[in-house]
């Protein structure tokens, strides 16, 4: 798995470099095409690495901290590639690739834990439900990453429009409408998945040891994440909140997501994994 992951990381890294260079300098179109192909190859190899890991361990590769990060990088790559196919936004791809690289790279840096059979044994009958809980969370976080990138693009572009400062990036950013529309879809997908993830977590926890809430720091962070995105959805639907405010909330929400991700590895508690 590690070798395959390393190949994927190399593809993501070079893809990110080419995509950013193409964005900044409007280099020949093949730079960006090259970046896209690197992303596709990286994604394919990444998929293969996860399949191999799943095959070796006979379970979904989402039990250790390393696996969570790798899975998240993969889910982000999938979402970003999908968004690119749909919207053809070069800027979105260029901003997304470094993030995909970062998460996958972190996964590679993390130590590979040895035996995970004990953890699985501890989960017992709830193992599949808790796996579903983790998968839902990871895909929700990938959607929030897309929301975060579009929010950043929105904020940069809005600032340029308001201040009438048109730098070199100006010519290559997607319109505010496009940013808002990609972000809104990612918000809906992420929020639904997060809600389902929390529900499956609560049910799984009840089945496992009879409690709904452990008072774990990660549970508080997840609740905060849910509340933030709930606010965005709520105010978007009722008060027509869009644009800058929604974008800022998207950025704050993702900051909490990142804190949660760090927390999985660092906080002690029910959710702590190695």
């Amino acid at each position: 798995m590690t070798t395959l992951l390393l190949v994927a990381i190399a593809c993501y890294a070079f893809g990110a470099i080419y995509a950013i260079a193409a964005l900044w300098q409007a280099r020949p179109p093949y730079w960006f095409r090259l970046a896209l192909w690197l992303m596709v190859i990286g994604f394919s190899v990444h998929t293969a690495s996860m399949v191999v890991r799943g095959w070796e361990t006979s379970r979904c590769p989402l039990l250790t901290y390393q696996e969570v990060c790798a899975f998240l990088g993969w889910a982000m790559a999938a979402y970003f590639l999908g968004a690119y196919v749909w919207y053809r936004s070069q800027a979105l791809a260029a901003f997304a690739m470094p993030m995909v690289f970062l998460f996958t790279f972190v996964a590679w840096l993390l130590p590979t834990p040895g035996d995970t059979a004990a953890v699985l044994k501890f989960y017992g009958r709830t193992a599949s439900l808790l796996t579903l809980h983790a998968v839902l969370f990871v895909f929700a976080y990938a959607a929030f990453a897309v929301l975060f990138v579009t929010a950043l693009l929105y904020l940069v572009q809005e600032r340029q429009l308001k201040r009438k400062q048109f730098g070199s990036l100006w010519f290559r950013l997607p319109s505010l409408d496009t940013c808002d529309s990609i972000g809104a879809k990612a918000l809906v997908v992420g929020f639904v998945l997060l809600t389902l993830g929390i529900l499956t977590g609560i049910i799984g926890s009840r089945q496992l040891n009879g409690v709904y809430w452990h008072g774990d720091p990660l549970e508080f962070l997840s609740l905060a994440t849910w509340l933030i995105y709930f606010c965005v959805v709520h105010y978007r639907l009722t008060a027509g909140w869009r644009g800058r405010r929604a974008a800022w909330l998207g950025v704050i929400g993702f900051a909490i997501v990142v804190m949660s991700l760090v927390g999985i590895g660092w906080f002690n508690g029910f959710h702590a994994i190695s």
Partner: peptide, 26 residues
Amino acid sequence: TETGIGAHTISLGSVSVELARKVFDH
């Protein structure tokens, strides 16, 4: 294809359209 030489408009009307497209897309 390899340079953006024709990509940027330089008349008042077309620049307004370009700005509108930056906000509204279509």
